[in-house]
């Protein structure tokens, strides 16, 4: 696509001409200024705070590396990282597998596909706070799922994960997968529909069976979609805050703490803005390590298409 466009007005000269030439930049400048200050300026600001003596209020007095040292010596941070690893791997893994299975099943010329798709995807429209509230109620050991199973006659059924500090993190996975797998399904379904029918026909003429065609031909073609959904899900996982707050409040104890909840409580309730900032910097680095290469390759690919 050509990017050069004639600017007849520019020949007018004078103030109007200058304005006409620079208008695009002027129009874009509020956004650039906002991004410069509120994104990049704030990143620098918070990074700086993570090297200061800031406690209840942000101060500029230099403290050096010590907040970072304290961060890494903090057992709750250690737990938060461990939880992020468990939550991240299971949430991304299960949501991807469930989403993929649903997409493949829906791709078999299903009657009422639209209705079923709508049902699978609606949780994505809800706030994580709503999701957390509902699942908290359903998983509550007294009156929730446990009672339901007892009423069905399964008297020994026990499901107390949400109040069990070894298992509570898995309830976050359950609620997270429920909320996001429909989105993965929608992405994969769009990908399946975009696969060229000719390729599939050619494969089936060669005698390949349906599962083989999916596994060997279609899935490899959908690699970009696997990547996109991985990026979206990992990004959601690292930022996860609301869901944990509504579902478990980070507890029991701090057994479901995640970096995002750790940052918030250090900063706003434990009067350790320095340590909170240090943890925020770690979160940013993790996200950037995933997003920057991804965005770079996406933009480069778009540019390639344009030329």
């Amino acid at each position: 696509m050509s990017s050069h466009i004639d600017r007849p007005a520019a020949t007018r000269g004078g103030v109007l001409g200058w304005l006409q030439i620079h208008l695009p930049k002027i129009v874009l400048s509020p956004t650039l200024a906002i991004t410069g200050v509120f994104v990049y300026g704030f990143i620098i600001w918070t990074t700086y705070l993570s090297f200061t003596k800031s406690r209840m209020f942000p101060v500029t007095k230099w403290e050096g590396i010590s907040p970072h040292v304290k961060l890494w010596a903090n057992p709750v941070w250690e737990k938060a990282l461990e939880n992020l690893a468990i939550f991240g791997i299971l949430y991304i893994g299960i949501a991807t597998v469930v989403g993929l299975i649903l997409a493949v099943m829906l791709d078999q010329r299903i009657r009422q596909e639209g209705v079923i798709r709508t049902i699978y995807l609606y949780p994505m429209a809800l706030s994580f706070i709503v999701t957390g509230t509902v699942w908290k109620w359903m998983l509550n050991p007294g009156l929730g799922l446990e009672k339901l199973m007892h009423d069905f006659g399964w008297a020994s059924f026990k499901f107390d994960w949400i109040v069990n500090s070894d298992m509570a993190i898995y309830t976050v996975v359950i609620a997270g997968v429920w909320q996001s797998s429909g989105f993965v399904m929608a992405m994969f379904l769009a990908g399946l529909r975009a696969v060229d029918d000719e390729i599939i026909k050619a494969a089936s003429i060669d005698g390949a069976s349906q599962p083989i065609i999916y596994w060997k031909v279609i899935f490899p073609l959908m690699r970009p979609i696997f990547l996109s959904s991985f990026v979206v899900l990992s990004h959601l996982a690292i930022k996860s805050y609301d869901l944990v707050i509504a579902l478990t409040g980070g507890g029991p104890g701090y057994s479901t703490a995640l970096p995002a909840t750790f940052m918030y409580s250090q900063t706003f309730t434990r009067n350790h803005i320095d340590i909170g900032s240090a943890s925020a910097v770690m979160m940013l680095i993790t996200v950037a390590a995933i997003m920057v290469p991804y965005l770079y390759s996406e933009l480069k690919a778009q540019k390639g298409v344009r030329q």
Binding site: F38, V39, W45, L49, Y241, S279, V287
Partner: peptide
């Protein structure tokens, strides 16, 4: 510029809470 703006979508917002 577009790349710089785009990155702003994906930062964990924890990094801007205190300055904001």
């Amino acid at each position: 510029f577009f790349g710089l703006i785009l990155f702003g979508c994906f930062i964990p917002f924890q990094i801007v809470l205190v300055p904001m």
